[in-house]
Amino acid sequence: MKARAAKTAAAMAPAGQASALKAEAAPKKRVSPTKFFEQVMAEAKKITWTSRKETWITSLMVFVMVVMTSIFFFVVDWVLRTGVTQILALANAG
């Protein structure tokens, strides 16, 4: 399927870009497991972790937003329930 997509893209691309797309579609060379894990460790060293304070503030903000959202939906549910109850009461009275 990827080969078909690459052929379609190459056919639709301007003449100068067709060769670049063909080279991009070629399978990549396999990397040895040792080299792979070296690359993984190198990338892992680039990770920047959030501080304890940032994590605490973010968690607190999530909690506040959950509370606000639940209050909002509680009020909306109460208003709709009251409205529907009133409409049904009118229908049963008549």
Rank of each mutant, 00 (worst) to 15 (best):
F74C: 10
K22Q: 03
K2V: 07
I57K: 04
A10V: 01
R52V: 05
M41Q: 09
T48L: 03
F36P: 01
V66K: 13
F73C: 02
W78D: 06
F63I: 11
A91V: 12
A3N: 14
K2T: 09
L21R: 00
K22D: 01
T48S: 08
A10R: 01
F72L: 15
A26I: 02
V66L: 10
P14I: 02
P14R: 01
G83T: 02
L80G: 03
K28C: 04
N92D: 13
S70E: 11
A44S: 09
K22Y: 03
V79P: 01
A13P: 00
F36E: 10
Q86K: 10
K22H: 08
M61V: 14
T8H: 04
T69H: 04
A44M: 08
F73D: 01
E38Y: 01
A89E: 11
M68C: 15
L60P: 00
A18G: 06
A91C: 11
A44Q: 10
V31R: 09
L90A: 08
K2R: 05
A42G: 12
T48D: 08
A42W: 00
I71P: 00
A18N: 05
P14T: 01
A91P: 06
F37A: 06
E43T: 13
K46E: 06
T48I: 07
A25T: 09
I71T: 05
E24L: 15
I47F: 02
K35M: 14
M68Q: 08
S51A: 03
R4I: 14
L88C: 07
I87Y: 05
S51G: 11
E24I: 11
K45E: 13
I71V: 14
M61P: 01
L60E: 12
F72A: 14
A91R: 13
